[in-house]
Computed example of a mutant assay.
Amino acid sequence: MSDTHPVVAITGSSGAGTTTVTDTFAQIFARESITSAIVHGDSFHRYDRDEMKRVYEEAGENAPSHFGPEANLFGELEDLFAEYGRSGTGKVRQYVHDDEEAQLYGRPPGTFTPWLDLPAGTDLLYYEGLHGAVRTDAVDVARHVDLRIGVVPIINLEWIQKLHRDRSTRGYSTEAVTDTILRRMPDYVHYICPQFSNTHINFQRVPVVDTSNPFIAGWIPTLDESMVVIRFADPRGIDFPYLLSMIDGSFMSRANSIVVPGGKMHLAMQLIFTPLIWWLVESSRKARAREGART
């Protein structure tokens, strides 16, 4: 963690909705005139698309998944967070997803750009991906993050979202997506789930419609068909009466948890994150000013 260069990490598995949360943060950054260095978790995968296919073919049932350490650069991610906390910079690259990004980066889809330094003069580093709060015997990424946020739909909803996304945008069959889910399950249990005990705040979307068989679901439950459980690891300083008064239909389920209608999730994020981000940035700017005065 850093007094001068804060790191914010949004952690959630594939299809969890972290991109939607990123849109909310983009609005906050624009409104509060905050400049951020954006880092995407797939930039720290170990293999590009063709390499991963080859690894799958060679390893068979023992193939690594994008959830676990064998297919990721956990050490490099920890180094980036640590270096940014010290100096406000660090090495990153981009993963090229599609033809549109290929034109932007000048690299074929499914490959990585070269490693480059982050732009100078940013207020914070913003990470969105799978491993923003990961801890293993070898690395502790979480300890370098000032604000750790988990995005955790219940598992059936997560699978529904992944099935629909991979079939509609990537052309995969239901059987292929199901195989991926099964292959990733051990790494999901050992490396994804434990992160949500390391987060400061978790957002868990819970549908109020039947999702008992996600593999035949015809549509993704909407926000209005859901409730969102927001859990604070440390509820001290959280103004729950204010949140309850501002978010119609919300209620407290535990002393550290508030439940809001799904359609109010973005409002809840704005109300919760804006003061936290403002405090992080203002504190870091003051800390940098003090360092500058001493030098």
Rank of each mutant, 00 (worst) to 15 (best):
V7N: 11
A9V: 04
G15I: 12
T18R: 06
V21S: 02
V21H: 03
D23K: 01
D23A: 07
T24V: 05
T24L: 07
F25K: 03
A26K: 04
A26S: 11
Q27E: 14
Q27Y: 07
I28P: 04
F29T: 12
R31P: 12
E32N: 06
S43G: 15
F44I: 05
E51C: 15
M52R: 15
G60L: 13
E61H: 07
E61V: 11
H66G: 10
H66N: 14
N72V: 07
L73Y: 10
L73S: 07
F74K: 04
G75Y: 11
F81A: 06
G85I: 14
G88I: 00
G90W: 03
Q94F: 11
E101S: 12
Q103G: 07
L104D: 11
Y105Q: 08
R107K: 15
P108C: 09
P109S: 14
G110C: 15
P114F: 02
P114A: 12
W115T: 12
D117R: 03
P119T: 09
P119C: 01
L124S: 01
L124N: 05
Y126A: 05
G129S: 08
G129Q: 06
H131P: 07
G132A: 13
D137L: 08
A138M: 05
R143N: 12
H144S: 06
H144P: 07
V145G: 07
V145A: 05
R148E: 09
P153I: 10
W159D: 04
L163C: 08
R170S: 15
R170G: 15
G171V: 08
T174Q: 14
E175R: 13
A176L: 12
T178K: 07
M185F: 11
I192Y: 02
Q195Y: 06
N202C: 08
Q204P: 04
R205M: 06
S212F: 07
N213S: 05
P214H: 05
I220Y: 13
I220F: 09
S226K: 02
M227E: 08
F232L: 05
F232H: 08
G237E: 01
Y242K: 02
Y242V: 01
D248P: 00
S253Q: 02
A255I: 01
N256T: 04
N256D: 11
S257T: 13
I258T: 02
G262E: 06
I272P: 04
F273A: 05
V281W: 01
S283R: 04
S284F: 01
R285K: 05
R288K: 01
A289G: 00
A293Q: 02
T295M: 01
T295P: 00
